[in-house]
Design a binder for these strands. Structure first.
Lengths: 154, 154
DNA sequence: ATAATTGAGGACTATTCTAGTACTATTTAA
DNA sequence: TTAAATAGTACTAGAATAGTCCTCAATTAT
């Protein structure tokens, strides 16, 4: 199923709300109330997004969270990485120590390629794209996503 | 991390071996011995691949498993689907009942789009691609993967 | 100054999912 | 009829995830 964690899913909901809303500063409690996600969970997610430099936090009374960049500059890949670490389908693509297959794993290089492909696809979609309506008549969206695989080899 | 399960990873190793090897029929025990994966685990994976019509099984003495199609006709997307169910990043993309976000989820359509994008990318890579060597001088591979996103809307 | 508000950081728990194993039935060849 | 091989299903242990809670730090308002 190639699953994304629930927290990541929540993160996109939260960020979409923040991108759509005019106000710049949002307290965690406010976000929890609006999205319907429990406050401690929202807090956890917001903290991760701050660490990943996707959000900026302000402490104290009247504090809260705001987007660090404009929605067009925040890619879905960045959000996923913030919540789940580096984007990669297989273990061996992350740790350099390689897998311990008896026969030797011949296909790691190709997995890396696929990882790159997907990463590129996710990199090309931004928060601004996510908050666009999906009805087909509103489609001033990207014509196509072009992934030059050959370039990955260079 | 956008993780793929270990079983799926194993499946690609197993299928790569079968695609590379000339012999048509391979018993589960043989595959276990060569790949170094425990026999019960190998069996489990092979059964799933049979159900997904990626492999054909023959029972009885001299039986075994063989590819149902040529390696160029087996996509990585099919393999992933066989092991993990439909390829989708978010829960709500699979079940039709929708999520129970208080504010209403505005972004489902866009997630579906991203799912489609990734699915297309995985669909375009086949088992034959996986067993190709990865050294750059051997690259008679695909020039690029073209994903016409606009067409998804029609 | 002091109190109130808000985020930071980390620890902890319960639940769910995954990986792996085992057992029994069924099919086929010799 | 026996041996070899897959089919199907159920079960267990371990790991990962989701979610919660508590204490500390920072800022603003009174």
């Amino acid at each position: 199923m190639l699953r994304l964690s629930k927290l990541t899913d929540y993160a996109t909901v939260i960020l979409s709300f923040m991108a759509r809303d005019n106000a710049q500063m949002h307290a965690a409690m406010e976000i929890a109330a609006i999205t319907g996600i429990a406050l401690p969970t929202v807090s956890k997610i917001l903290k991760l997004l701050v660490n990943a430099k996707i959000l900026i936090s302000t402490r104290g009374a009247k504090g809260g969270y705001e987007l660090a960049r404009t929605p067009t500059e925040i890619s879905i890949a960045a959000v996923i990485s913030a919540l789940e670490g580096p984007i990669a389908l297989t273990e061996c693509s992350i740790s350099q120590q390689g897998c311990e297959q008896a026969s030797g794993c011949e296909i790691r290089g190709n997995w890396n390629l696929i990882n790159q492909t997907i990463h590129n696809a996710l990199e090309s979609v931004t928060l601004a794209d996510m908050i666009r309506p999906t009805r087909s008549q509103d489609l001033a969206w990207k014509q196509e996503i072009l992934i030059p695989v050959a370039s990955l080899y260079r």
